[in-house]
Protein backbone atom coordinates (compact mmCIF):
# COMPACT_ATOMS: atom_id res chain seq x y z
CA UNK A 1 0.00 0.00 0.00
CA UNK A 2 1.44 3.39 -0.95
CA UNK A 3 -1.14 5.63 0.69
CA UNK A 4 -2.75 5.83 4.11
CA UNK A 5 -6.26 6.94 4.92
CA UNK A 6 -6.97 8.80 8.12
CA UNK A 7 -7.23 6.20 10.88
CA UNK A 8 -4.91 3.64 9.27
CA UNK A 9 -2.18 2.06 11.42
CA UNK A 10 1.10 3.36 10.01
CA UNK A 11 4.80 3.80 10.68
CA UNK A 12 6.52 7.17 10.40
CA UNK A 13 10.09 8.35 10.68
CA UNK A 14 11.61 11.71 11.61
CA UNK A 15 14.96 13.26 12.42
CA UNK A 16 15.05 14.18 16.12
CA UNK A 17 18.57 15.61 16.27
CA UNK A 18 20.65 16.75 13.30
CA UNK A 19 24.37 15.91 13.58
CA UNK A 20 25.01 19.43 14.92
CA UNK A 21 22.37 19.04 17.63
CA UNK A 22 23.64 15.71 18.97
CA UNK A 23 25.46 14.99 22.21
CA UNK A 24 29.18 15.82 22.40
CA UNK A 25 31.90 13.15 22.52
CA UNK A 26 30.21 10.69 20.18
CA UNK A 27 32.34 8.31 18.12
CA UNK A 28 32.94 9.86 14.67
CA UNK A 29 30.66 7.41 12.83
CA UNK A 30 27.71 8.21 15.11
CA UNK A 31 28.39 11.97 15.20
CA UNK A 32 28.20 12.13 11.40
CA UNK A 33 24.59 10.92 11.17
CA UNK A 34 21.34 12.31 12.63
CA UNK A 35 19.42 10.74 15.52
CA UNK A 36 16.33 9.30 13.84
CA UNK A 37 13.07 8.02 15.33
CA UNK A 38 10.48 5.58 14.07
CA UNK A 39 7.09 5.22 15.65
CA UNK A 40 3.78 3.54 14.88
CA UNK A 41 0.32 4.96 15.34
CA UNK A 42 -2.95 5.88 13.66
CA UNK A 43 -2.63 8.37 10.77
CA UNK A 44 -4.39 11.63 11.56
CA UNK A 45 -4.93 12.41 7.86
CA UNK A 46 -4.60 10.76 4.47
CA UNK A 47 -1.04 10.73 3.12
CA UNK A 48 1.17 9.11 0.49
CA UNK A 49 4.22 7.10 1.52
CA UNK A 50 7.08 9.59 1.69
CA UNK A 51 4.80 12.49 2.65
CA UNK A 52 4.52 14.19 6.04
CA UNK A 53 1.79 12.93 8.33
CA UNK A 54 0.89 13.07 12.01
CA UNK A 55 0.02 9.93 13.99
CA UNK A 56 -1.65 9.32 17.33
CA UNK A 57 0.33 6.66 19.20
CA UNK A 58 -0.94 3.96 21.57
CA UNK A 59 0.08 6.25 24.44
CA UNK A 60 -2.07 9.06 23.03
CA UNK A 61 0.76 11.30 21.85
CA UNK A 62 0.59 13.01 18.46
CA UNK A 63 3.89 12.83 16.54
CA UNK A 64 4.70 13.93 12.99
CA UNK A 65 7.08 12.47 10.44
CA UNK A 66 7.49 10.94 7.01
CA UNK A 67 5.12 8.08 6.21
CA UNK A 68 7.17 4.88 5.87
CA UNK A 69 4.53 2.16 5.67
CA UNK A 70 0.83 1.44 6.04
CA UNK A 71 -0.04 -1.59 8.18
CA UNK A 72 3.70 -2.05 8.83
CA UNK A 73 4.82 -5.65 9.10
CA UNK A 74 7.30 -7.27 11.43
CA UNK A 75 9.77 -9.24 9.39
CA UNK A 76 12.12 -10.47 12.09
CA UNK A 77 12.12 -14.25 12.20
CA UNK A 78 14.00 -17.28 13.50
CA UNK A 79 16.75 -16.83 10.91
CA UNK A 80 18.25 -19.54 8.78
CA UNK A 81 19.55 -22.92 9.83
CA UNK A 82 22.82 -22.65 11.75
CA UNK A 83 24.68 -25.91 11.04
CA UNK A 84 27.11 -25.28 13.92
CA UNK A 85 24.21 -25.42 16.39
CA UNK A 86 22.89 -28.61 14.83
CA UNK A 87 26.35 -30.10 15.32
CA UNK A 88 26.41 -29.03 19.00
CA UNK A 89 23.00 -30.66 19.42
CA UNK A 90 24.15 -33.87 17.73
CA UNK A 91 27.23 -34.16 19.93
CA UNK A 92 25.36 -33.39 23.16
CA UNK A 93 22.49 -35.78 22.55
CA UNK A 94 24.83 -38.49 21.36
CA UNK A 95 26.94 -38.13 24.48
CA UNK A 96 23.99 -38.21 26.85
CA UNK A 97 21.74 -40.69 25.01
CA UNK A 98 24.30 -42.69 23.04
CA UNK A 99 25.76 -46.11 23.85
CA UNK A 100 28.61 -45.06 26.12
CA UNK A 101 26.81 -44.41 29.38
Amino acid sequence: MTAARAGDWVEISAVLLSPAERAPNLPADTAAVPLVMRVRGWAQAAAEVGAEVAVRTQAGRVLAGTLLAVNPRFDHDFGGCVPELIEVRRRLTEEMLGGDR
Binding site: R22, A23, L26, T30, L35, V36, V39, R40, T57, Q58
Partner: peptide, 19 residues
Protein backbone atom coordinates in the same frame (compact mmCIF):
# COMPACT_ATOMS: atom_id res chain seq x y z
CA UNK B 1 3.47 -2.79 21.06
CA UNK B 2 1.41 -5.95 21.54
CA UNK B 3 1.10 -5.07 25.23
CA UNK B 4 -0.34 -1.66 24.36
CA UNK B 5 2.67 0.64 24.64
CA UNK B 6 3.87 3.35 22.30
CA UNK B 7 7.31 2.27 21.17
CA UNK B 8 9.58 5.18 20.26
CA UNK B 9 12.37 3.55 18.30
CA UNK B 10 15.64 5.43 17.90
CA UNK B 11 18.83 5.10 15.92
CA UNK B 12 22.11 4.44 17.73
CA UNK B 13 23.30 6.92 20.32
CA UNK B 14 23.41 7.78 24.01
CA UNK B 15 20.76 10.48 23.43
CA UNK B 16 18.19 7.79 24.24
CA UNK B 17 18.19 9.25 27.75
CA UNK B 18 17.54 12.83 26.54
CA UNK B 19 14.67 11.56 24.42
Amino acid sequence: EALGAEVLQLSVGPELFAM
